[in-house]
Amino acid sequence: MDNNSCGCNVCSTREDLPWEGRGTDLPIAGCRFTLYPMTDRYVDIILGSLEKTDTSYVWSETDALSTVYRGKLPYVADAVKALFVNAYRSGVHMALEGQFSKGCPGDIAGDSLLEKDGEAPNAKSAEGIHFPVKCKLALYPMGVGNYIDDIAKVWYMAQDRGLEPTTIHYATRISGDVHDVFDYLRDVCALMDESAVSHYILHFTVNCNSPTKE
């Protein structure tokens, strides 16, 4: 499979697509996400969390709809987790919806930081804050025939880590400490890299302090 095709019939037959000729061999991971604090203080929480999170190891851009971080997977995952932890307020219902992606044939080689090395910059600042979260996720390994085997691997990974995975319609649900859940999302992406899945998407929603009674 080349860089400009995910293997689907559309990408294989169309030559007038807007991303035709794009794609990159660079190890660029990305996450686009939107933070939803359910409070009238949402502006201060969102902007304060963005400011407090160290993004020196990722390329970042925020617009009216969302924020994107791009770079090496460990640093992208570190920044996303730190942003959610930094936004946490006791008793405030909050959700973060986003998707990790790597290997998209429509990607470009720019807009990333890949020269960074060493410990993730937010690792120590966020480690002392703990609270329970719920998460739903859906993994899409693209261009592979045995995709259900890759999905099964990450389901059992959640089970082995005590995250209590439950199959729900169109997604898997897990729950646990905020660090355990975000580290799991990072490791799902890392497993796709190890499994030689050249293009994958991991869609997720992380939620804390939900008022919904179950």
Rank of each mutant, 00 (worst) to 15 (best):
G176C: 04
N207G: 00
Y156R: 08
M157V: 06
E51M: 06
C6L: 07
L65F: 15
L50N: 11
V181K: 01
G106P: 01
R161K: 13
L35G: 10
G118N: 09
Y147E: 11
H169G: 02
S101N: 10
I45F: 03
L47S: 11
N9H: 03
L65W: 11
L26S: 08
N86E: 11
C11T: 12
V80M: 04
A171F: 11
T55L: 02
M94A: 11
C104S: 14
F33E: 05
T172S: 06
S56G: 08
F131K: 05
G7P: 01
I148H: 02
T62C: 08
H203M: 11
A82D: 05
Y140D: 10
D25C: 08
D117S: 15
D149R: 07
Y140R: 06
P74S: 03
T166A: 11
Y140K: 05
E51I: 11
K116N: 12
D149C: 04
Q99I: 11
K102I: 14
A196P: 00
M192A: 05
Y184L: 06
D44E: 15
R32Q: 12
V154N: 01
N209C: 08
T166I: 13
V68T: 15
A120Q: 13
K134H: 07
W59I: 13
L65H: 14
A64S: 13
Y170D: 09
G128I: 10
L137A: 14
G71T: 09
C6E: 06
G145Y: 04
T34G: 13
G118R: 03
L17T: 15
I46Y: 07
T167S: 12
T34F: 10
E51G: 01
L65T: 14
P105R: 00
S112P: 00
L191Q: 12
N4C: 10
K153Q: 07
D150Y: 15
S90I: 10
M192Y: 03
A79T: 15
A123W: 01
S125Y: 03
Y42C: 12
D78E: 08
F84H: 06
D111S: 13
M1Q: 03
R161W: 11
R173M: 13
D177F: 05
V58Q: 02
I28Y: 08
Y88P: 00
D107Y: 02
E214F: 12
R14N: 09
H130Q: 07
V80R: 02
P74R: 01
T13Y: 03
L50K: 12
V206W: 03
F131H: 05
I46D: 09
S125H: 04
G21N: 04
H199A: 03
G162H: 04
V178W: 02
V181G: 05
D107L: 09
L113Q: 10
V188T: 07
W59R: 06
H179I: 05
S60I: 09
D111L: 14
R89Q: 14
S5N: 15
G143C: 04
K52S: 12
P165M: 07
N207T: 15
V154H: 02
T55S: 07
D183P: 00
G176W: 02
G23T: 12
A152Q: 09
I129G: 00
A29Y: 05
D111K: 09
A126R: 08
D117H: 10
D16Q: 04
D2R: 03
T166H: 00
S195G: 02
V133S: 04
N4R: 02
G106M: 07
T34D: 10
V154M: 13
H93E: 12
